[in-house]
Design a protein around this nucleic acid. Structure first.
Lengths: 340, 340
DNA sequence: TTTAGATTTGAAAACGGTTTGGCTGTTTTG
DNA sequence: CAAAACAGCCAAACCGTTTTCAAATCTAAA
């Protein structure tokens, strides 16, 4: 059923029908009611491709999916989806074929030129991220999930990584820990830098000198969590507490502690960052895991919302959100063991 | 830059340019070469919305994302993306707003009517799945990831769940286990039924009577793995082996065993199904986890491939793939402890 | 040298909507 | 009471391609 046919059915012109359905004011309320009702009855829906061609809107928001199957990703997208389900807006998943830098820029460029999306969400930006510069230059609306120092106006939403890690670390210091290790995310991304800052800041406030031997970074996997934690704990002067970057990392850390006969929450304290997954919860770990917590799903929902606002014309410079992060203390953190 | 402008630049008609770029044979090779080269130089790309309107193709494959943030999902999509990156085909993620049955049907119906996708991938079908009947009836091309007994021709790709679980269970029996429990996925889906069949079949072959007390099912979460395993192991006559439905479930099972002072791979054997995640590997668990293994990512890649074949006109009835599942034995399985 | 046939090219009609500008009639205003 | 303002509707142009059908050009056969 096309517009022309449907209009004939209703006894109106295509113009009026289109306006009635799109909510324009030039049509009387009684007419609009009749049209919408008939549309539902006859099952008329405007051809989405025609609308998109005419209006120039793509009706989709793009998210670039990294190669490494990040487990965060699905949650973020589920959150986006939650917000977008009511809109006429799709989520377009763009795969990144190659982790090569130039290639990634080319990907963004092609994506913009293909006009398949109205906006793009950029994840895990760097302090000076060329993707942001590019999107700005190309005039493509975008929202950064994370932060960047780049000298280009842009909308962003981020969580307070620095504050979260600072509080977590300070809490460990308050518990008497002096040797504290941290497993950070891959170097380069702003969030990793922020976490590093938070960590260093807390140590400094506590009058503790940083030991570079107690710093590690890499992908958020169980394996790296294990390997790093092992290497920390096997040092001559091992840490009594570990700050882990993710739930998966924490799993590895727990495993490492156990493998060395250490008990988490007694011999070694652990705090991790929890993005809140339905299938793996900090509360259920044994011992339950103290965590800095911020819902990835909620971030996805809000990001989708902000992108819609952006597309609706809200000013770039207004869209900056910094979310606080909860610190939830459970059994994995305890007073530092008295030195033997 | 639009087609008309570009055509003028090249000194040809829009018709010829369009043909040259789309690879039609009616244009001389020398012309085609010139056109493609100029297109690259001037950066001309056909407006995707215009193409879609004209051709009626949506240029996207739809996948419906369930409410529960399944961790499988991201891997499957990453796999799809791997295959689709070269094509002019997008992945459209459609969120399911409500787990309500009728609502889901309505979602599929709207999706088809909106013409935003050329094909749909249906996950976790049931033996008689109304979604399949609906899509068939509506004439929308689709591929089922999983299997269904429904009396409607359809393309599918599935892994041999029954065989996998049968082999896993048989292996446990060979090790001398007589009381074996299983934690299955949510009841209703075909894969859960197949796993159940495999489990029962192996028991029967081994001359063991099934104890319904040793059967549980639910979402693949760490928490349920823990709860079910606890309830099994606390029974008066506890199982000596547990077959778990997923990696997350296995985490819970390990935890439950530890919490009861039991050692996995000695006091209780565990086998789980592993979809192969980059961030959580069976080999790295402690003790390393014996598993039935099949890559979710590979399935996504192949599903994308098959959908493309489907759209290219390959017959429905030819597209049936049943993948074998590896059984990888590690430390979590051992001979049954001698009864005390 | 024609002429039929094959090869390239182009003009114009879709595809299915939205939106500009204009046209009625009715109500308000000076 | 005439002029102006307004509400409600419509005809037609347009969005940027693909594709049909016809025309132009070239090649080979008669």
């Amino acid at each position: 059923m096309k517009l022309k046919d449907f209009a004939k059915h209703v006894g109106l012109s295509p113009t009026t029908v289109s306006r009635a359905l799109s909510g324009y004011p030039e049509v009387s309320e009684v007419t609009r009611a009749r049209v919408t009702e008939e549309a539902a009855r006859l099952g008329y829906r405007p051809n989405v491709n025609a609308v998109r061609l005419k209006t120039g809107r793509a009706g989709a928001i793009g998210v670039v999916m990294g190669r490494a199957g990040e487990f965060h990703f699905a949650e973020f997208m589920a959150g986006m989806a939650e917000r977008l389900v009511a809109e006429e807006t799709d989520i377009l998943v763009i795969p990144m074929s190659d982790p090569d830098q130039d290639d990634e820029m080319e990907l963004y460029r092609r994506l913009v030129e293909s006009r398949r999306v109205d906006a793009i969400i950029v994840h895990s930006p760097k302090p000076s991220d060329p993707r942001i510069a590019l999107l700005h230059e190309l005039g493509m609306p975008f929202l950064v999930h994370g932060r960047s120092d780049i000298d280009v106006p842009h909308a962003w939403l981020d969580i307070d990584n620095e504050g979260a890690i600072r509080r977590a670390t300070s809490h460990l210091i308050d518990l008497g820990h002096r040797r504290i290790a941290m497993i950070n995310g891959r170097p380069g991304a702003t969030y990793a830098i922020h976490r590093d800052n938070g960590f260093r800041g807390a140590l400094q406030s506590g009058g503790i000198e940083l030991d570079p031997q107690l710093l590690a970074s890499g992908n958020f996997t169980d394996e790296l969590g294990f390997r790093f934690a092992r290497s920390f704990l096997e040092q001559p002067n091992p840490p009594t507490a570990i700050v882990a970057g993710s739930m998966m990392t924490a799993l590895g850390v727990y495993r490492a502690a156990r493998s060395l006969g250490l008990q988490v929450g007694r011999d070694v304290s652990v705090i991790a960052h929890d993005d809140v997954f339905p299938y793996l919860t900090a509360d259920n770990m044994a011992p339950s895991l103290s965590a800095t917590r911020s819902s990835m799903r909620a971030a996805g929902t809000r990001c989708a919302d902000l992108v819609l606002q952006l597309l609706a014309g809200r000013s770039l410079t207004e869209i900056h959100e910094l979310w606080p992060v909860e610190l939830i203390l459970r059994e994995s953190t305890a007073a530092a063991p008295s030195p033997r």
